[in-house]
Computed example of a mutant assay.
Amino acid sequence: MSDLKERYLKAQQEERKKQLEKHSKTIKDFITLCSEIGLKLTSENFSYIETIGIVAKYPNLLFHLKPELKKVDEELIECKSLEKHFEKKNFNSGMLYSDKFIAMAHPYFRRSLSEYANFAPRFIDLFWKFKDDKVKTYIALDANRVRINVDDSAYSELDTWYGGSFKKQIEKISDGVVKIRPPGQLDETDISFFFNEAYSLDIKWNEKSGIKTFQAEEFKTDKVTINIGAIEYYPVRYIHAEYDIKNKHFRHFDGAIHFYEKDEYFQRRDSDLNFNEKIGTHLKARTYKLFKMNKNVSIDTWITYTSHFCTGNPLVFEYFEGKYPDHIQNLLNKIVNKASG
């Protein structure tokens, strides 16, 4: 296996070298483009990433190239404004095309929040194709990187995802918290493979002045971490939405990543969304907002994007449908039958 791994890594290095040489003129032209706006880039600023293409990396590069882009809420940009500067292509979700480079959705939309991975299906694919004049949409972009090979190449992969239709009347949902965890019969390997490292799904509903507020945090196992600077964090997807009971639609819906440090993570994951009220002192995670929808957001839209934002997590399906997907239930039946036999 070590020889096989060594050959694989060597092949990857050779492919990177080949692609960088193939696009040497493109890289040179982009260096010239950047020099014209006062940026000094060298060959060290460029890399080939199999899942993306030829990538230029420089602090706040996108906003140096497009200073007219305006952030309206933390790191979010109104999607409508992006249409003035970029073109979307149906086959390559998450990419925004211009003449000289391609802007990209934020790397936290990628698998395991890794800047080297492909986008986690299918949230970005759905968000890219979303059209509803009654809804204002916002997105976080990759500020420090752009793709410079402006062509039709795209990396694709197959995946399984779960969604569900929410049939209950939201105004009839009782206020309170919900916590869902994978079945206790599953071992670490099963949870990793079938539950995408899900540890728990925490949900809270609260009604005030005709507005029903939804919050959810998706905790992964302690195997899933991300380094920001010199600090190791445990990333937790967070969803917040506000449902207008009178008008029967969501007036607001956003998604973010909460970053907990180690002690905070272990304090919080076995509690619920009333944790701060219980302990008296507030635990406030570092937050990075990734998308937002405002105005008239339908229940179906909210369910679909919530499901796909928590990609590959059957706990979301269980909450909305009241059962596991068939292949998860079949797995559990086999485990129970084996234990009883």
Rank of each mutant, 00 (worst) to 15 (best):
K262Y: 14
K289D: 04
R16S: 08
N333F: 13
I279H: 03
Y319T: 06
Y288G: 05
Y234M: 09
H327D: 15
T225I: 08
E261F: 03
A241S: 12
E157F: 09
I173K: 06
P59D: 12
N296M: 10
M1W: 09
N274P: 05
R181M: 02
D300K: 13
Q329S: 10
E78N: 08
L76M: 00
S156Q: 06
F266S: 07
T32P: 01
N196Y: 07
H282V: 04
I245H: 05
G322D: 10
H282R: 15
F266G: 05
K40V: 07
K28C: 01
W128D: 14
V224P: 06
T137R: 06
E87Q: 13
T137F: 01
I231E: 15
K28L: 06
I49Q: 10
A143W: 02
D73G: 00
Q169I: 08
A105I: 07
P314V: 03
L76D: 03
Y305A: 03
V150E: 14
E78P: 02
F259N: 09
I231S: 08
M104N: 11
S209V: 13
V236M: 07
N118Y: 03
F30A: 02
S165F: 10
S98R: 03
D175A: 01
K168G: 00
T301L: 08
Y324D: 03
D272H: 06
I173R: 04
W161S: 04
T281L: 02
T42E: 15
L33G: 00
R269C: 09
L158I: 09
H327Y: 15
D300Y: 05
I139K: 06
Y155A: 06
E242S: 12
A140R: 03
K179D: 14
T311A: 12
D254M: 08
T213G: 00
Y324S: 02
G176H: 03
L315S: 03
K71W: 01
A105C: 14
I226Q: 10
N90F: 09
I124Q: 06
D222L: 07
T287M: 09
K289I: 15
H106P: 01
F309R: 09
C310K: 04
G164V: 08
K167R: 10
Y48K: 11
I49K: 10
F30S: 02
E218N: 14
E218W: 06
L186P: 11
F127A: 07
M95S: 11
E264C: 04
E188T: 08
G322Y: 12
Y238G: 02
A120L: 04
N118V: 12
Y8F: 14
I173S: 01
H282L: 03
E261G: 07
G38Y: 10
P59M: 05
S2M: 08
I52N: 00
D222I: 05
F291C: 07
K57C: 08
K172Q: 15
Q19K: 15
G280K: 12
A339G: 00
S24Q: 15
Y48G: 04
K278S: 05
I31T: 04
N296W: 07
Y288K: 15
V178E: 07
A103C: 08
T287K: 14
L331Q: 11
S192F: 05
H308G: 00
T225M: 01
K134Q: 11
Q19M: 15
D175G: 02
K168Y: 06
S112G: 10
D187I: 04
N118D: 11
K292D: 12
S192K: 09
N196K: 06
F214K: 10
I52W: 01
